[in-house]
Design a protein around this nucleic acid. Structure first.
Length: 108
DNA sequence: TCAATGACCTGCC
DNA sequence: GGGCAGGCCATTG
């Protein structure tokens, strides 16, 4: 795992996000041991379009779909989340505490 | 090649 | 308790 670059690690963790669950950039960064690198996680998501990474399951800590603008459609990200049972209103995830998934806790 | 930017978060004043 | 600036790695101009 440590042989992989930061981006590779981000991709691996993002792939482990359960169906219908969401997490934030800081949680992934913290799990990777770089809590201050949350920015890089977001940037990695930008480069994860070619990868098999569910970038739509990764949002900011406020539960806002800040990266939705980077998807093809206008509300594609929201559609994908709603398709998994995640309630999204006005680009903001509802019941975030319920569907929140923390890799540092779940994956230990 | 150097400098700036980017789907953010944490810590300090 | 709120606001501001720093930090991180990779990519683009």
């Amino acid at each position: 795992m440590e042989e992989l670059s930061f981006f590779e690690k981000v991709y691996n963790v993002a792939k482990l996000i359960p169906h219908g669950r969401v997490t934030n950039y800081g949680a992934i960064a913290k799990y990777l041991g770089a809590a201050k690198s949350a920015r890089m996680v977001g940037y990695a998501m930008n480069a994860s379009h070619n990868k098999d990474v569910p970038a739509h399951r990764v949002v900011n800590k406020q539960g806002l779909l800040t990266g939705k603008h980077h998807f093809d459609g206008t509300n594609l990200m929201q559609q994908l989340l709603e398709n998994e049972g995640v309630v999204v209103v006005n680009n903001q995830i509802q019941d975030l505490d319920t569907i929140y998934w923390d890799p540092s806790i779940e994956l230990h």
